Simulated assay, not measured.
Amino acid sequence: MESWKVNLISVWFGCFFTGLAISQILPFLPLYVSQLGVTSHEALSMWSGLTFSVTFLVSAIVSPMWGSLADRKGRKLMLLRASLGMAIAILLQAFATNVWQLFILRAIMGLTSGYIPNAMALVASQVPRERSGWALSTLSTAQISGVIGGPLLGGFLADHVGLRAVFFITAMLLTVSFLVTLFLIKEGARPPVSKADRLSGKAVFASLTYPGLVISLFFTTLVIQLCNGSIGPILALFIKSMEPQSNNIAFLAGMIAAVPGISALISAPRLGKLGDRIGAHRILLATLFCAVVMFFAMSFVTTPFQLGVLRFLLGFADGAMLPAVQTLLLKYSSDQVTGRIFGYNQSFMYLGNVVGPLIGASVSAMAGFRWVFVATAIVVLINLVQLAIMLRRRQRISIN
């Protein structure tokens, strides 16, 4: 088997265990904060938000640095750093005795991030360019699978073995990622880069043929994560407003939250392969348009079932968006700066994870639950129009 195929299979499992490990802690993080002595409703809400978002904020700041280091020292080294670093940071969280310790350890966890973007960059640098859309889409199914399975596994373990034990099990999963990376992933020798040859951030963008389009794709990544996260804070409350007599709101919310991942798993490799044939830009524009329609439609639902169906349909588009962005970033950047570009893109992804829930919570507080879907649709529509203009401008330049 060709080495890039072996690497693709290996990092698929590494990304799966990473997605599983990270997502299985998040559902019960407020419960753990409460267990650490935070009792009042206001303080619990504040600390839950802080401990959740600090990881993504720190990750957004350091991602370009790790991307630069990956271009110089190799991506396998960055994968080993991220998997082992996260395993240690999560293991230490099991021993936290107050919320400040947990907050600091969650910030340190953000410092160690970067497994999945470096896995993407490694595969992108080795796979034949004509198969890059399929390969990146296939790799994205690993993270999606982990994110679907993580909350279910985390909730089950928390109920049966206790909250602290979940941190130990999560650290073990990340250690498995480390071992898979260490023994199975092969990366060719990289030529040494002297200090004089290292590109500054300005020089990275100067080396791009279409820097404006690349920046536009960064903002598209932010918007994709924003529309995934904006619904999170209000989902359970919105379902409760539609079914006030129901006794299984948490179960319904969990199902409706997970259902887009199932359809994304189905669509991602197929749309990735289609993108290799007809162009990733067409897939990206079509899926963003579908997202706009679905979010507008969600603002009119009257039952949880209708919401679940629309979110399932949204998942078909969702599974193709980020891989399409990454395929276009690969197309419009050279091998010398791929790691840096993927690092910048990951920063925008993390920022979307922070901004999305803030927008969702703010809009619902000011205007009501249904307006969160409308506001999200408008943000995606603005991004779609702006991206279409940038792609058309690039087309005009390439023709001339």
Rank of each mutant, 00 (worst) to 15 (best):
K331S: 15
A280N: 05
T170S: 04
S263R: 05
Q101S: 10
V11F: 02
A87C: 03
L213I: 13
R396T: 11
I148K: 04
V374Q: 15
I9D: 03
G146F: 08
S45R: 09
K5G: 07
P27T: 07
I397S: 05
S362D: 09
F373T: 05
S207Q: 04
I148V: 15
G339S: 06
A250M: 12
H41P: 10
A377F: 03
I239P: 13
I389A: 08
G261S: 09
L391V: 10
G319E: 03
L208Y: 03
E130G: 00
L50N: 07
I283F: 06
I169V: 12
C290W: 07
F95L: 14
G146C: 11
L208H: 01
N248H: 11
P128S: 02
G49H: 01
N228I: 14
A119E: 01
S230M: 13
S177K: 00
E130K: 13
L50S: 02
R72T: 10
R277S: 11
I256E: 06
L174T: 00
N247Y: 08
V62I: 15
D159A: 15
L29W: 01
F219R: 00
A250Y: 06
A171S: 15
T303Q: 06
V58G: 02
F156Y: 11
S113P: 05
P244L: 10
S68Y: 12
I215F: 12
R198T: 13
T170D: 04
V54R: 02
Y32M: 06
F342Q: 03
Y350R: 06
P27M: 07
S299R: 08
K186R: 08
I88K: 01
N247Q: 10
P244Q: 09
M78G: 04
I22V: 15
A135H: 04
I88L: 06
Q395H: 15
F305R: 09
L271G: 05
S23Q: 14
A165S: 12
A280R: 06
D335N: 15
I278P: 04
A280F: 01
I234E: 01
K76R: 15
T170M: 03
A171G: 07
E243D: 07
L152C: 11
K202P: 07
L265T: 09
G150R: 14
Y350W: 09
M172T: 14
A107V: 12
D197Y: 06
T302R: 11
V161L: 11
T175D: 00
S59F: 14
D335Q: 10
K186C: 04
M86L: 15
A286E: 12
W100K: 01
R392W: 08
L163Q: 00
N98V: 05
L284Q: 09
I88N: 02
I256G: 05
L358P: 02
G155Y: 11
L139M: 06
Q225R: 03
L102G: 00
S230N: 09
L80C: 01
V166C: 07
G188C: 00
M390A: 14
V379C: 00
V379H: 00
S216H: 00
G272I: 01
Q24T: 13
A258L: 15
F373I: 07
V379D: 01
F56L: 13
K73V: 13
D71V: 08
L381V: 08
M172S: 12
V223E: 00
